[in-house]
Each structure stands twice: as C-alpha cells, then as structure tokens.
Computed example of a mutant assay.
Amino acid sequence: MEPDRVTDERLHGVLAELMRREPLFHRPEFGTSRADFEAMTAPDFWETGASGQRYSRAYVLDVLEERSQEPPVEEWETSEFHCRELAADLYLLTYTLVLNGWRTRRSTIWQQASDGWRIVYHQGTPVLDA
C-alpha cells in the first residue's frame, strides 16, 4: 500500500540541504524575525494546515512574528525524508514530524533561487492511528 519513496541518488545533496531546514519555521539557525521568514518564503507562498484550512503568506508571517515574541518550548523529531525533483530548481520534500507528541506527514515545495532556498508551499497532515 505504501508508495516507493526512494530519493534518486543525484538528489542526495539537495535532500541533505533541505533536511537541515525542516521542520520549517522551527530552525532558529535560519532566522527568527519576520524579515528572515519573508526571505525564506516565495512571494506567492501559502500553506494548508492540519485542519485543512488554507493560509496566506501574510497570515503565516503574522503568526510567526507573534510566536517569535515568546517562542514555545517544543520537542520534535523528523524521519522518513524523501526528495523529488518537480522541475528545474523546484523540489518536493516529504517527511514525518512528531511535534510535542503529535505526528504529521509534511510536504514542502522548495525552490532553489540564486540567493538561496525559498518555500513555495507547505502542508501538514495529521496521522490518525487506526
């Protein structure tokens, strides 16, 4: 039933770079200010939350700016990373995140730009244990 999620060998360098950046917005070494988050997201970035609600870039930036005022204490673990090239300089990264005991499957579309990596789209889907 599970799909074959083997990253093509030629993408191992990209996979390693993107793994260092996830979970996105939870890695202080890549920035904690609104300006940092603006720089790491494409102008037309948006995301779909665990609820299924769609969020605009402006909304996400507002939430991140508010969260940065009093950063939450978080325990997280990532696993099952897979990278797939969608087009030239455009990659889909999927992985599993356990954040404070809550497990989700994550998908992020990353674009490699001349000035670094940018997030185009992100989605988190809760894993419901049967």
Rank of each mutant, 00 (worst) to 15 (best):
I109H: 07
V6E: 02
L92C: 01
E9Y: 11
A87W: 02
S56W: 05
R105K: 13
A87R: 11
A87C: 02
N100C: 09
E38W: 06
D62E: 13
P43K: 06
I109W: 04
L86D: 10
V14K: 00
Y55K: 12
V63A: 11
T94K: 01
T32Q: 14
Q112T: 01
D44W: 09
R67Y: 08
R10F: 01
D62V: 01
G52T: 09
L18D: 02
F45H: 08
T96C: 03
P43M: 13
G124E: 07
Q112W: 04
G31S: 12
L18Q: 08
A42S: 10
I109C: 03
A113M: 10
D129F: 11
M1R: 05
R103V: 11
E2H: 12
I109D: 07
V14N: 03
S79R: 09
T7S: 13
L86E: 05
R27A: 12
E85P: 01
H82C: 08
E75C: 06
P72N: 03
E65D: 15
D89W: 02
C83V: 10
L90A: 04
L15E: 13
P72E: 05
R34F: 12
E66S: 15
A113R: 15
L99K: 10
E2F: 12
Q123I: 07
W110A: 01
R118A: 06
L64A: 10
V14Q: 03
R34W: 10
E2W: 09
P28A: 02
A58W: 05
E70L: 14
G31H: 11
S56F: 03
E65F: 06
A50M: 13
P71G: 11
D89N: 11
E70D: 15
R118M: 04
F30R: 01
Y95E: 00
T48F: 07
S79I: 10
F30A: 03
E70S: 15
G13I: 12
Y55G: 03
P3W: 00
V73H: 05
R5P: 06
L86V: 11
I109L: 02
S51K: 09
V127G: 05
W117V: 15
P72M: 04
L61V: 13
C83P: 00
E75D: 15
V14I: 15
V63D: 10
S51A: 09
T48W: 01
H122S: 10
H26P: 00
A35I: 02
R27C: 15
P43Y: 08
S114T: 12
T94D: 01
E66I: 14
G13R: 09
E65P: 12
F45S: 04
E70P: 00
D89T: 04
T78C: 04
Q53D: 02
R67C: 10
A35V: 07
M40C: 14
V73I: 11
P72G: 07
V98D: 03
A35M: 09
